[in-house]
Design a binder for these strands. Structure first.
Lengths: 172, 172
DNA sequence: AAAACTGCTTGCGATTTGCAAGCAGTTGGC
DNA sequence: GCCAACTGCTTGCAAATCGCAAGCAGTTTT
């Protein structure tokens, strides 16, 4: 897929690794959805990633050091994918992209609530989130506060609000 | 190339527009290299973009509102491409990506000097840069200080240093 | 009048994508 | 023990995209 050595520019090298329509989706689901198994990443994917593409991307992300893989002790066939420090360090990139997307693209309110929180929280919140990801994916100590829970709960509430609004449209 | 409606997630929608290996390269060259004509974007491209790909990406970026195009008064065939506010707003995304790339990928020192400056300058510098881009690409007033000149000069110096070092390798 | 330059198109083989089905092995419920 | 459900992942194939080279009509420079 990717040829080597287009140029030594950081933007270009980043695009050579992540410049497609699926790699960052996979990382996003691992990061914000805490999805760690193959089928989990495939079945719960909002965008409906095909299994061969997922297999290919996981392989590529492994080769490039963004994620790691270990066997699941509870199931001999299961593998657990984890973010590496390199993958966790993409948090600011996700935050910037998500903030841009929610400002200029036709996002849905539920899906952009987390982008909003991340934008408002700024770099300080991103650091907290990264510390939590180091706990979830690496062997770092557990932080006091869970940013992921906060994000997930806000998302859950937004979905709930939408569901309620759709069910009772008398309030116009 | 892109199908519509995978999901309303800001990350996904951003990837549907910019998730390939060339779109951001084109925008990068317009933004940091101030390249505004077709041939300029093609010939001076460090990565060697093919003309059909460039034509396709410019069309797509136009359709998606990231750039605009107007005729060049000085040459009846020339078109001038400009960044829109939507395109200019990608500065933080570029800064985040470039910073990540320079930390984790095999970048060359010359090519990462600008990423370094942007990372050190932080959001305050990005805002200054965006104000300057609004002057160069839209009709905004000229800011006092030119961030682009600063970046370009630092890059030029880095290239010069490298050239000198390559020419006289007696200093080991 | 010739040469160089303008944005951009065309042709074509190789790669990548999207979609559906399937496979060998594992686990859990009965 | 037995079977259904589940595991990560592969295969086949048509359609789309990519990378590369050449070329084109019109404009400007020399």
């Amino acid at each position: 897929m990717r040829e080597t050595g287009r140029s030594g520019c950081p933007i270009n090298l980043t695009l050579e690794i992540l410049g497609d329509r699926w790699s960052l989706i996979v990382l996003r689901d691992m990061m914000f959805g805490n999805r760690r198994h193959f089928r989990e990443l495939q079945a719960k994917s909002d965008e409906g990633i095909a299994s061969n593409i997922l297999a290919d991307r996981l392989k590529r992300l492994l080769e490039n050091g963004l994620i790691s893989r270990r066997d699941d002790a509870s199931h001999k066939q299961k593998g657990i994918y984890s973010l590496t420090e390199m993958g966790i360090s993409l948090v600011p990139v996700f935050a910037a992209m998500a903030d841009w997307g929610r400002r200029f693209l036709p996002v849905t309110p539920e899906m952009s609530i987390r982008a909003e929180i991340l934008a408002e929280g700024g770099p300080a919140l991103w650091q907290k989130f990264m510390a939590e990801l180091r706990f979830l994916h690496l062997d770092a100590p557990q932080p006091a506060q869970s940013v992921l829970d906060e994000l997930t709960e806000a998302y859950r509430c937004a979905v709930e609000r939408k569901r309620a609004a759709d069910a009772e449209p008398e309030v116009v």
